[in-house]
């Protein structure tokens, strides 16, 4: 019995597969990306930059940066705590916790937004109390931040959990035996071990935080210059027949995607080649 080598398909099969892959990539990834930049630059570089001169656009960019600036650190703290608990402790309900962390990925973003309307809306559970204290959560910045934190919740934790589980507790135990405090152990042993996976999670989390549309759209209220994030502003500009500005602002998100991609490749390369942390098998996403 002879085994056929894995790469011995006829030449035409290989060509066909390659052609199909390339066609798909061109049709679904490259063309839209090119289209965004062509549309944005259709009336020249001047019109492109004029799109960013609109105070509403600048406020949208600021709000997006603020939202990501809060959502990402919050998720770093949560991700570290969750991964630490899952990887280093045994406790009842552990598998439930890991499943729950994935919940935001399974729920439609619109539903995520509606959850916050149900809780913080005027007729929601906390609505009357918030009103009595003159606090506005949904249709204001806090609601946008909450919705973003919710949809980006899994990204950091999911990167860290498999890695920390695989690494086990030996390094930390040795450090503790040698007299390090818990805090020292964390800074000098755990963190260096996981830093690339953590950074990877941060980058994915940030991309999603800046790009989220559905959940944020539900809780935004769409007040021009106040509660529109960049993706919402793109929709508004498009709906106002302001196509060049819409695509100019959309090109920011496209560039964010490209930077994310580059950073992701760099980190993947570091994760597999860095001497400090062991290779991570497979793509954790």
């Amino acid at each position: 019995m002879s085994l056929r080598p894995a790469t011995a398909e006829p030449r035409w099969v290989r060509t066909l597969l390659l052609a199909i892959t390339m066609l798909f990539l061109a049709a679904f990834l490259v063309t839209p990306l090119v289209a965004v930049f062509t549309e944005a630059l259709r009336k020249g570089v001047g019109a492109y930059f004029a799109g960013f001169n609109d105070p509403a656009v600048r406020s949208a960019i600021k709000l997006t940066l603020l939202t990501a600036g809060i959502a990402v650190p919050v998720n770093v703290v949560f991700g570290l705590a969750a991964a630490w608990s899952v990887a280093k402790f045994e406790f009842p309900g552990k598998s439930l916790l890991t499943t729950l962390i994935d919940l935001p990925l399974a729920v439609s973003p619109v539903v995520s937004g509606l959850i916050y309307v149900l809780v913080f809306g005027l007729n929601g559970w906390l609505g009357p109390w918030l009103k009595a204290h003159h606090l506005q959560v949904i249709f204001a910045v806090p609601g946008i931040v909450l919705a973003t934190v919710f949809v980006t919740l899994p990204f950091v934790a999911r990167e860290l959990i498999p890695l920390m589980q695989e690494q086990g507790t030996e390094d930390e135990e040795s450090a503790l035996t040698l007299g390090a405090s818990g805090w020292q152990t964390f800074w000098r042993v755990t963190l260096p071990n996981i830093r690339w996976a953590l950074l990877y999670g941060v980058i994915l989390c940030n991309a999603r935080a800046m790009g989220e549309f559905g959940a944020v759209s539900v809780v935004s209220g769409h007040i021009r210059g106040k509660t529109n994030t960049v993706p919402l502003q793109v929709e508004i500009l498009y709906n106002e027949y302001n196509f060049v500005a819409a695509f100019a602002v959309a090109s920011l998100l496209a560039m964010l995607a490209l930077v994310t991609l580059a950073a992701k490749s760099f980190i993947e390369w570091r994760m597999t080649s860095a001497p400090a942390s062991p290779a991570v098998p497979g793509d954790p996403t």
Partner: peptide, 12 residues
């Protein structure tokens, strides 16, 4: 990160 959090708090 902490600084961003505080700034955001003040902005709301």
């Amino acid at each position: 990160g902490a600084a961003v959090l505080c700034a955001a708090d003040a902005a709301v």
